[in-house]
Structure formats: C-alpha cells, structure tokens
Amino acid sequence: MKKLSFNVNGIRRNTLTKDNELLLDLLRERLGVKSVKAACWRGECGLCTVLFDGKPVKSCLVLAVEAEGREITTAEGLAEGERLSDIQDAFVKYGASQCGFCTPAFVLTCHYIIESGKAKTEKEALELLNGLICRCGTYNQIREALASLLSGK
C-alpha cells in the first residue's frame, strides 16, 4: 500500500492505494464519486472521463498512484453550491440529458471544450466529443447546448 494525497473537486483526499489500482476504481468504488461511470474498461466509451489537472482523461487508463498531488474534477465539482456551471445550465435549458448514464462525461468534456477555447467552430467542438461514444435520443440537444456557449449566445 502507498499513501496517496490528491484533490477531488477541491477537497484534499488522503488515502492508501495499491500500485495496481485504477483511478476509476479509487474514485468510484472507494471514494464514492458515482458520476464516474464504469462501462467498457478499455478507454473506448469515454464514460469514466474526469478532468486531471483540468484536462480530460479516461480514468480506466490511469493508475490511482499517478494522481498524487493532482487535481481531479468530476461532474460533482462543476457547480458552486446551488449555482450550476454554464454548461450544466445549458444542458438543462436544451434538455440534453440523453439517458443520463453518459451525461457526466459529456458535461465535463463540454466544460473543457468551452474553458480551454480549443474549438473555434461547432465542427471543431463536435470533433472533440468523438471520444464519447453515446449518441442516443438527445445528442442533438448536446450539440445545441455546446454550440450556445461557443458562440456566446
């Protein structure tokens, strides 16, 4: 066992980890951060996405020990108290929830796209969503929510 100290949504977490523990397991199973979903376990579906020092990573492909001293942000960490973040607001406004299972990963990735300024156009923004495979009923509403913030409407 190794001592591990890192931030989850701004809160210091001190825990013990085995060297072969996945960040996904630590967050979801041991720290109870349930917005981080476990589905494919091989980096393909994107549903275990978290922000690692502000950038998206798939937590099934990261060791827990790699998080030492880092800042992890999950969907739980986007709102400030009762105040939703801009992208969460937009998801509500456009009804962009799909079935809900992939929503945390989409919200986080969209948040990153907006905050990083990596996409200039809607097309570029949508390309940055290609690591999340879910495309069910309200994918168009996700597009709308994302686009509404890109153009600053």
Partner: peptide
Amino acid sequence: AADIAIRGR
C-alpha cells in the same frame, strides 16, 4: 489520433 482524452496522455 484517437480522441482528446487519449491524445492528452
């Protein structure tokens, strides 16, 4: 290559 989350690692 891949997607934004994988490219970053």
